[in-house]
Design a protein around this nucleic acid. Sequence first.
DNA 1: CTGAAAGCGCTTACAG
DNA 2: CTGAAAGCGCTTACAG
Lengths: 344, 344
Amino acid sequence: MAVTLKDIAEQAGVSQAAVSIALGSSGRISGTTRDRILKIATDLGYRPNLLVQGIQTGRTQTIGLLMNFASAFDAHLFDGIHNALSDQQYVPIVLCRDDDHGNVLEQIHSLLDRRVDGVLIRPTDGTVWEDHLEAILQRGVPVVALDVEIQAKMPQIDFCGTDDIHGAHTAAKHLLDLGHRRFGVLNSGDPRTPMSIRGQAFAEAVNATKGTTCVTQLSAWNGRTYENDGARALLDLTPRPTAIFGTSDNVAATVVHAADDRGLSVPDDLSVVGFSDTEILRSSRPTLTTMRQDPFEIGRRAAKMLLDRIDEKHNRTASPAPRQAVRQKTELVVRKSTAPPAGS
Amino acid sequence: MAVTLKDIAEQAGVSQAAVSIALGSSGRISGTTRDRILKIATDLGYRPNLLVQGIQTGRTQTIGLLMNFASAFDAHLFDGIHNALSDQQYVPIVLCRDDDHGNVLEQIHSLLDRRVDGVLIRPTDGTVWEDHLEAILQRGVPVVALDVEIQAKMPQIDFCGTDDIHGAHTAAKHLLDLGHRRFGVLNSGDPRTPMSIRGQAFAEAVNATKGTTCVTQLSAWNGRTYENDGARALLDLTPRPTAIFGTSDNVAATVVHAADDRGLSVPDDLSVVGFSDTEILRSSRPTLTTMRQDPFEIGRRAAKMLLDRIDEKHNRTASPAPRQAVRQKTELVVRKSTAPPAGS
DNA sequence: CTGAAAGCGCTTACAG
DNA sequence: CTGAAAGCGCTTACAG
């Protein structure tokens, strides 16, 4: 069906090996025959079979991507990854946590069986990644963690994500500078997630100032949205916090809504800070003060790190570079949801 | 490195072909040796090389997926696809429109070169898909269109999406029943998109009732969010519409915001209906009346249709089934953004 | 019922 | 500088 090297070889009157070499980069074939072969290949619409090349060269130009999609943040992460990959003719096989078939190990094997050159993984949910990653590392397949750092900082696994601690400190400073002293933090469950890291860093930062209080609440994630319960609990405190740090824009939005339900005005009665600067919330009322992340750039950078590792593995020149952990800085975006506390 | 059939054959003292047959389904090997071979395979941790199997059998257990991610709707679409695929040990190579590398044809070749068994495609943006799809169809690779129907209804391309016309009619009926007669429709650019189809169907439905007016406006999509300009233009009409149909939840949200900016109350001064029932907007204020879609089910169904076509192709029993076009019904969800017009 | 051989479409040593 | 051969790890006719 498809055109093969053999077809070209027959038309050109040379061996199949000669065609393979002519089409390859290692200019081993004289200019004139080479041009002739190339022309025939083009005319016939030749396309290499990447499966065979993969077997032969040990490179499939394919990576595995393990991540879930829920928000616009995730979408941008993917766009960045896709952008870096397509620059180098790579494509991703994308697998996500599936409630019915939660077997991560099987997914990893599914990637390995297809001989992916590397794996990009966003290690969310409670999975014990350290165990599952064994299979990948044994095969010598590079792995990069995306957005969420793997708890046991394995020396073979690079990381690319956000400087959550710095971001949370900046948010804390913003609110402290405005004069706030009673804080609430709205967090999510898993201690490994960026959200938790932010929440802890925020609490540390405000606690370093005398005369402050800071109460942390958890917000339940039902798989699709956050519940309002955590936000309500914070607003029911006596005395009520004057400022609440939402560890993501989405939980921050639940605070705004809960305040609205109680007739509290943001920012007059309550200041709210989010984290991410997701576009979808840019039109929220009031507009949200937040720490801007650049998920596209995180995705792009992470994919590049992975591609570099893959190259490194094939050009066995020097010894491999040490583990890299890139943490991108966030930027404070002040909008209408923060103000000095009432009566200050 | 990896365990091969040869390794197993040596340990078992049989030929490599025997191992291949023993591991396959066609019980051609006697029970006792077969069990022995299976045990050795398990002990050695044998995993088949799917690249080789792909070359050999013509099936890679891999499909190509061409779609962009932006909203939660897209994420659910993907979840549904993933769910159906993983049921059958399939994985998707996911490619999306990339502003810098917009060459769809190259992406298609990139999939074909990797010998995907089928392609699932969401034919958004202005691309002339009919042309690009040639390359796929020539190879005999099945294609299913997802969510957006390809304009020229090619007989080889199945479709799975939403019954937009029925949904728009239902929305129109809801507002007409409430007593509205002056309508606005907020739409998006491309006439092939579901949004446009909904807008037209809505206008038709209300125009079928005497004494109604219906003005359509376009809302600009800046690649990440919708601008408010279209919504403002509708609110500036004299007389102002009493009800606006947003052809997606996101544009409906811009209407609510624009109304808010003008001090108009929803639903007292203005009724707004959305389309999709995206979770992220369930917490909007006021909560939005909308036509609920089930993107998970659309994705799942579309992927199943594709897998069926792939099977059909390999089990050349009967002649192929005719083109299928599945349009899922939507459900009207009445919330707080719709009410009878003022003064009625 | 089982083994030896051919073949899938390439690349890469190895001879001339 | 070029051709013929071997090999990647499988599956599937084809002989015994």
